[in-house]
């Protein structure tokens, strides 16, 4: 998995590509930890190039959402493909995440 970081307005954009699974989740988890530790920021996840997400990946999004809620900032997810969308739907994550 590859994580590309950029800035868009007042939000930090993380574009993920490849597979977000047990092996790669810690990488994103670590990245988010350093990002959110420093300051309260708005987050945007661009999943246009993300092929697959496992429960470990969902966990990272859940953690991020919890932290964002605690900080009172915004988190958005966009560019979700069918496979990933289905996983979000099945697990009910569509109800708690802001998916465009």
């Amino acid at each position: 998995m590859e994580i590309k970081k950029s800035v868009e307005g007042n939000a930090t954009v993380l574009a993920l590509s490849g597979r977000l699974d047990t092996i790669t989740s810690p990488q994103l988890s670590k990245e988010l930890e350093t990002l959110l530790e420093k300051e309260a920021i708005n987050l945007i996840f661009d999943l246009s190039s993300l092929d697959y997400i496992s429960s470990s990946g969902l966990r990272v999004f859940l953690s991020a959402q919890k932290k964002i809620n605690a900080m009172g900032t915004q988190m958005k997810i966009r560019g979700v493909n069918e496979t990933v969308k289905e996983i979000f739907e099945v697990t009910g994550f569509t109800g708690i995440l802001n998916i465009e």
């Binding site: 969902l58 859940l62 919890k66 739907e89 099945v90 697990t91 009910g92 994550f93 569509t94 109800g95 708690i96």
Partner: peptide, 9 residues
């Protein structure tokens, strides 16, 4: 009806 996972929120 797909509800949210347990232990999340």
């Amino acid at each position: 009806k797909q509800g949210f996972v347990l232990a999340g929120l």
